[in-house]
């Protein structure tokens, strides 16, 4: 097993952990962390799975850099919304939707 493949296997596990976290955790800041875990998992798979032989493939490296920036942007927006919600309701959880 190459080290790249090992990264990819760990990446898949991190991704699944992150998705489970986003679905199951009600506390919003922790949910944002779970989303970041999920993203990191996908990035590890992207770099790890493409890593064959000794020379690294620069294309997935650049893609991951792009992905990280997008994740930073999404995290910042999510934190801003959570902070605003906290300022308005004093809670860090989503209120139940009344469904109508």
């Amino acid at each position: 097993m190459t080290s790249g493949l090992l990264f990819a296997l760990v990446g898949v596990a991190l991704f699944a952990l992150g998705v489970a976290g986003v679905v199951l955790i009600a506390q919003l800041p922790r949910r944002i962390l779970a989303f970041n875990l999920m993203g990191s998992g996908a990035f590890l798979v992207l770099v790890g799975l493409a890593q064959r032989g000794d020379l690294p493939d620069p294309v997935p490296h650049a893609m991951v850099l792009t992905g990280i920036v997008v994740a930073v942007a999404a995290t910042a927006l999510a934190l801003a919304l959570v902070r605003r919600l906290h300022a308005l309701t004093g809670r860090l959880q989503l209120p139940e939707d009344d469904g109508d």
Binding site: G18, V19, F35, G39, A42, V45, V59, P60, G67
Partner: peptide, 11 residues
């Protein structure tokens, strides 16, 4: 995110 992981596997 799910879409991205799919793209990573395809790559």
């Amino acid at each position: 995110g799910a879409y991205l992981l799919g793209v990573a596997l395809i790559y």
